[in-house]
């Protein structure tokens, strides 16, 4: 019986490029990003002051923070999709990235005049920011988890969390082209909260659907 199986598998053998996983992952993430960007464009629209915004440091800090976390998430997907892998390096790097931004935000908050603090932290959209991040992440989470199902994750919860980190942070990156908030503390708290929520959703879903 096993002989039959081996014969069938050998007959079915097609070449697989050594970089196949990375290439397909890249294609899947680009597709998810395109869907997320289209959703943002139609639903929320680009920020009206885009031309001036690109002259401010905070615009680039928001963009870099979310993009770096997103790419670390993609790297974690690439690791955790392989059997036996733990993905320590990308996940640790993401944690350090969050800690660095949180520390900078804390210093920024503590050294600012008391009357400015409220605005730096809450801005005008604190209540909706994490929600937008979560919604814009959904196309990415969908494709990342679907891709992960074709891989061989031996830690389904962690693999789902990695997909959540990639989706949440890249969704936040897309959102940063709409959001007009200027505060570093705002970024550290509300963006991170949205991303963390998607990580949690990914972990919970991963635990259920990433069995093979």
């Amino acid at each position: 019986m096993t002989d039959d199986l081996i014969a069938r598998l050998a007959a079915d053998l097609k070449p697989v490029r050594r970089t196949a996983l990375r290439e397909r992952l890249a294609a899947v993430i680009v597709a998810g990003l395109a869907a997320s960007a289209a959703l943002m464009w139609i639903w929320l629209g680009l920020r009206p002051d885009m031309a001036q915004a690109t002259d401010t440091a905070i615009f680039w800090i928001k963009s870099a923070y979310t993009l770096v976390l997103g790419l670390l998430g993609v790297w974690a997907v690439e690791r955790l999709g392989r059997p036996g892998a733990v993905g320590t390096a990308p996940l640790l790097a993401a944690a350090i990235g969050f800690a660095a931004v949180a520390a900078a935000a804390l210093v920024n908050y503590m050294t600012s005049p008391a009357q400015e603090r409220e605005a730096m932290l809450m801005g005008g959209s604190a209540a909706v920011c994490p929600f937008y991040v979560i919604v814009l992440s959904m196309p990415l989470l969908l494709v990342a988890l679907a891709f992960m199902r074709r891989l061989a994750p031996t830690r389904p919860g962690w693999a789902g969390a990695a997909a959540g980190l990639a989706a949440g942070a890249l969704g936040a990156w897309v959102y940063s082209f709409h959001c007009t908030e200027q505060g570093l503390p705002f970024l550290a708290v509300w963006y991170s909260l949205g991303i963390a929520a998607v990580v949690a959703i990914g972990a919970l879903l991963g635990h259920r659907i990433l069995r093979w």
């Binding site: 081996i6 996983l21 059997p83």
Partner: peptide, 28 residues
């Protein structure tokens, strides 16, 4: 295990040792 290896063979990283990869699938 053989079937999972086959359908998920793109998850083998050619820069890494092979036996731990099979072992991880078998263990799973």
């Amino acid at each position: 295990t053989l079937l999972a290896m086959h359908t998920r063979r793109m998850t083998y990283d050619p820069r890494q040792p092979f036996t731990p990869w099979v072992y991880a699938i078998a263990r799973y």
